[in-house]
Amino acid sequence: MTDAPTTSPLLREPRHRVSPRARLMWQVTALVEGAVTIVVLLLVGLAVDAVDVRWWMVVAAVAAVLGWVAVVPQWRYAVHRWEVTETAVHTQTGWWAREQRIAPLSRIQTVDRAEGAVARLFGLATVTVTTASAAGALEIDGLDRRQAVALVAELTARADAVEGDAT
């Protein structure tokens, strides 16, 4: 976003952040994934003679994973937001590439609440709102579970109130 002195309207961010526990979940997930990747690479490197594994390679890989764990989940938590108004769902996701999605409640096709194994450990859930367009699904990752249940109920009720097949 540039600071050009203009008064043209801008899109505001959605009001609500996701649960702070999501940050922790993303950190743990990234750490585990990174550790597994390093171990697998290390084993392959040791098994294959052609690759000469040096200690600094391992250090670099560990540093990269730690850097990722320190920065990306934090960044993602700062970006991830959501909001449901009387007429629309509004989400913001991503970190490097940031994406805001707006869909009217009247065009909602399905509302889906998913709890992965890891998400359950943290009491979190993902709510996915789909529209009739394959390019238009809105996903809210890292919601508090009770909040997710209430949100799904609310969205379903509102989508039911609309006639037609929402295409």
Binding site: W96, A97, R98, P104, S133
Partner: peptide
């Protein structure tokens, strides 16, 4: 049926 606004860094 919806708008996506996407921007990389």
């Amino acid at each position: 049926i919806g708008w996506n606004i996407r921007a990389t860094w």
